[in-house]
Design a binder for these strands. Structure first.
Length: 584
RNA sequence: GCGCCUGUAGCUCAGUAGGAUAGAGCAACGGACUUCUAAUCCGUGUGUCAGGGGUUCGAAUCCUCUCAGGCGCGCCA
């Protein structure tokens, strides 16, 4: 469906053109002075310079053409040349009815869908998820859902860290503890055990211990490097052990991401590109992209107009081993080969910006990707505590994600109204949903690139611009809908009050907001929007008693309007990765 | 040292093709419940948009300098 704003834009642009001005000056936006009008066009002011006429005169020219357009209720020129527009209730109501009857609530599926890959996990094998992974997961999930809603083919990849030094650390630590395991017996030719020699809990203890040791002990670090190198070269026992690490970890990670309602289409990792490494490195060498520098194999990616010196892209370390830049590049090679995407989006901590700039430049320079493949780096900011410093546990450690979820769930549980009609299980499920809404809405309502303060009490509050407030609004609507029979075939009729009209206007912006959130990769726009809708609905709710309304036509119209509001809110929430309960 | 990002109300944050009087939420105070879930709604106040200079009819928004904070700058990811 065509957006309300687009219809108005087309009309006004046509008239600008008809009057001899460039179409672009007919640009209409939602009014920033809702007290004066619903929509505004500031083009006359902008056009004044080009046509050397007073903006007021230009506005008057166009006004002559605009004043008889049917869908405009009233239109006027204000101040230096603003054109203020209100649309008719008929036009608005028609649109709302069309939207109500449309599964996609007025958004049009993209005619020319893109294949978009989103890389947004970044979890490391053998390490528990912690708060640092939270933002990537929920921002990436939201961008994935928004893109998909608009009809694009979207592939979300967790891109596990499963091939780097941390694996070598774990392997060498396991060896220190259990040197007799067959994985370390160079003469072992039999089948390796099917059962992993550790549980997830043990694994999560092994890694930090190994990491700590390697930092202080040079020999341990050397062993870890050697183990990494051996693994990467295909050591049979190490590969078998590595698969255990992977399996045990992935099972746990799936559960944890699942608890967050974050779902990946691909559970690939850095290791998956290993089959392409030789081929790629040969390609890079054969085409003379590489050079040797300080013992390492590098590719120069500096450009003349760089404001700062860009270090060369590193293909192989001086010991011949690959590193993250190599696997990131090879992963692109693999993705182009397997999925041929139009765009690859990286949702990663913004501190990795320079690294990815190098990777992108290298991929383009070496023609591993076409010029028209779009790389998008979405670097998110740090989640800070109330002290403005990176969020930590009370003891100063890194907080695990599952602990954070439990804490916020408990926090919400305390605030939920006691209701005997809920069983303990229902209560728990409600607390989970409300808690997640608090966490996600609190995060996503901030601009992605900025650092933000994680304030548990603020996010989990049931008042104000929070997830729980929006869920409450949805629950409220569901409660009404349970009490009446909804007849979706009866129409929503013209608004009976300013408040009702404002609600309809807000609802009519839905498709526009989805698109704008997609273009800017900005879930916070969706947060802002659903808050506005929830707020408008609550005003409406307060002013009109629907169930006791005696005029049936009016009553059904209101019920349907509420039902549409619910759809818009739930869809908006879903695009943020948030679910609403039926009752709370 | 070089580079990137950030600085908006007491607090947490929105606000880009440059536009009218810079907006929300929280906190504070006052009001509205024989409820369709008051977990709501209504009302009241709040600003050198870090600072200086510039471009423009018009700047939180564009340019420039200064200050403050955060981050990054080849063999970790």
């Amino acid at each position: 469906m065509k957006k309300v704003i687009d219809k108005i834009n087309d009309l006004v642009k046509d008239k600008f053109e008809k009057c001899g001005y460039d179409r672009k000056y007919g640009f209409v936006t939602v009014s920033n002075r809702p007290d004066l009008c619903q929509f505004q066009c500031n083009g006359a002011l902008a056009a004044a310079k080009e046509y050397k006429k007073s903006p007021r005169d230009i506005a008057n020219d166009v006004f002559g053409e605009l004043k008889d357009i049917e869908i405009f209720q009233d239109i006027s020129i204000a101040g230096p040349g603003f054109i203020n527009i209100n649309i008719t209730d008929e036009f608005l109501t028609n649109y709302i009815n069309d939207m109500y009857g449309d599964k996609k609530l007025g958004t049009s599926e993209n005619e020319d869908p893109m294949t978009i890959m989103i890389d947004y996990g970044g979890a490391n094998v053998a390490k528990p998820l912690h708060v640092g992974h939270l933002r990537a997961a929920i921002i990436g999930e939201s961008i994935k859902r928004i893109s998909r809603y608009l009809g694009h083919k979207v592939i979300g990849d967790v891109h596990l860290g499963d091939w780097g030094l941390q694996i070598g650390m774990v392997i060498s630590e396991v060896k220190r503890r259990n040197p007799d395991l067959p994985y370390f017996d160079e003469n072992f030719n039999g089948e390796y055990p099917e059962k992993a020699p550790f549980t997830i809990d043990e694994l999560e203890e092994i890694y930090p211990a190994a990491s700590k040791l390697a930092k202080s002990n040079e020999d341990a670090m050397k062993e870890a490097r050697e183990a990494t190198s051996k693994l990467q070269k295909g050591h049979r026992g190490y590969l078998a052990l590595w698969k255990h690490i992977l399996n045990v970890s992935v099972a746990d990670l799936k559960k944890n991401y699942g608890d967050l309602n974050v779902e990946f289409d691909l559970w690939k990792g850095e290791s998956d590109c290993r089959h392409y490494l030789d081929e790629m490195i040969t390609y890079l060498k054969d085409n003379n992209y590489t050079e040797e520098s300080e013992g390492a194999l590098v590719i120069d990616v500096a450009k003349e107009d760089d404001k700062q010196p860009i270090p060369p892209f590193m293909v192989l370390k001086s010991d011949g081993a690959t590193l993250y830049s190599t696997t990131d590049l090879a992963t692109i090679w693999e993705r182009v080969n397997d999925y041929d995407p139009n765009e690859i989006i990286y949702v990663v901590d913004k501190r990795q910006g320079l690294h990815f700039e190098q990777v992108f430049r290298c991929a383009k320079k070496t023609k591993i990707v076409n010029e028209d493949l779009k790389f998008d780096f979405i670097g998110f900011g740090t989640m800070n505590g109330k002290d403005g410093k990176p969020f930590k546990t009370r003891e100063g450690g890194v907080m695990r994600l599952r602990d954070l979820i439990d804490i916020i769930k408990d926090n919400v549980k305390d605030k939920l109204r006691n209701n005997d009609s809920f069983t303990a299980e229902e209560m728990d499920e409600i607390a989970r949903k409300v808690g997640l809404s608090a966490l996600k809405f609190g995060d996503l309502s901030n601009q992605v690139t900025k650092d933000y303060v994680f304030d548990m009490d603020k996010f989990s509050s049931f008042e104000g611009k929070t997830g729980p407030y929006i869920l409450y609004t949805v629950v409220r609507i569901k409660s009404i809908l349970r009490k009446v029979d909804v007849d979706k075939t009866s129409n929503i009729i013209n608004p009976h009050s300013d408040i009702e009209r404002d609600l309809m206007l807000s609802l009519s912006k839905f498709n526009e907001v989805v698109e704008s959130a997609f273009i800017d990769k900005a879930p916070n726009k969706m947060c802002e929007y659903i808050y506005e809708v929830a707020n408008q609905f609550n005003k409406f709710y307060h002013n009109n008693k629907m169930i006791t309304e005696e005029n049936m036509e009016k009553k059904m119209s209101w019920i349907n309007l509420s039902n549409l509001t619910k759809d818009v809110l739930e869809t908006g929430l879903d695009l943020l990765g948030i679910e609403a309960p039926d009752r709370m």
